[in-house]
Write a protein that binds this DNA or RNA. Structure first.
Lengths: 157, 157
DNA sequence: CAATAATATGTCGTGGTACGATATATAGGC
DNA sequence: GCCTATATATCGTACCACGACATATTATTG
């Protein structure tokens, strides 16, 4: 379908608002734990990697959807802060990452608060995503026919 | 609950991977349309604002979850590029934003491709969010910790 | 109605992060 | 051994977000 109604824009904007709300929570939580947001994300990616996958630089870059050299920079800072260690694989080109106990501790605290936050705010995020996907609006139904419009009060936060 | 299993970390990491996949798509689409990702987000926020809300700087900053002066910088760049115009409200402290036809055109194209992408990849995002919220894991063929796990297939809304 | 406080926007300097271009180290194929 | 592919690292640049501070306008108050 090649048509966009005002409601479509509102749905997309609302979804981004919900995503940003979560990300902003996450950024603030990371900084409160004395770590930069992206570095937190890399630690989580290391810890959350399936066990049969080696925690290599390029593997993590894919998980974070960044270029490998951006991952290198994150690892530099994390290693400097004592959150991760570099080791070598059998293939000595590879660098394998391991969390230090300091890294484990910080990640654990952050993961707990993130799970909590997602259980609270996740439903709103689900709703806004479903609205974008199904084209269901909070106001009028479609807009193309410009039929009678029913206004529904929108909840501010 | 104060306990985190390996599966919890994997679920959180997988959710972030899905979110990053979408955001990475969005960033690439914006750059392909010759606009910076955050500037695109601000345009969407302007267009997607409920009609009874004035498109002020601080209103948009709240929608994007950034400080007001960060929004000012985005608007500076957008205005310099001819994507938005500044106007004044009755309260002459306020700056109200309007998309130019150029801004409308770019935003429309990006919104179409975003809706398309979300219809394709949205379900994977929904699943990973539901897993974090319900504590349901994916591991069944891994062999490790192969207990009985009930898949809760939840189709929110 | 001037002084002051509150609100809205803007400026400046700094740091984190992402990128493209490029470099180095190791592995694998022939 | 030589050539190519792969994995990681370095360098310079740009975007963006922030804190601290500045300016403009409106509201309050005595």
């Amino acid at each position: 379908m090649k048509r966009l109604t005002l409601t479509d824009y509102e749905s997309l904007a609302e979804l981004r608002h919900q995503i940003r709300r979560f990300l902003h929570f996450s950024e603030a939580a990371a900084r409160a734990a004395r770590i930069e947001p992206r570095q937190h994300q890399l630690m989580l990616a290391v810890k959350g990697l399936p066990k049969n996958v080696r925690p290599r630089i390029s593997e993590l870059a894919e998980r974070l959807q960044i270029q490998h050299h951006s991952a290198v920079e994150l690892v530099n800072r994390l290693a400097a802060g004592g959150y991760v260690q570099r080791r070598h694989g059998d293939d000595r080109r590879e660098v394998l990452l391991h969390l230090t106990s300091k890294g484990e501790r910080v990640l654990r605290e952050l993961s707990l608060s993130h799970r909590e936050e997602l259980r609270m705010q996740g439903p709103a995020l689900l709703r806004s995503l479903n609205r974008v996907m199904t084209g269901t609006g909070t106001k009028s139904s479609d807009g193309t026919g410009a039929k009678k419009k029913k206004r529904i009060q929108r909840r501010a936060l």
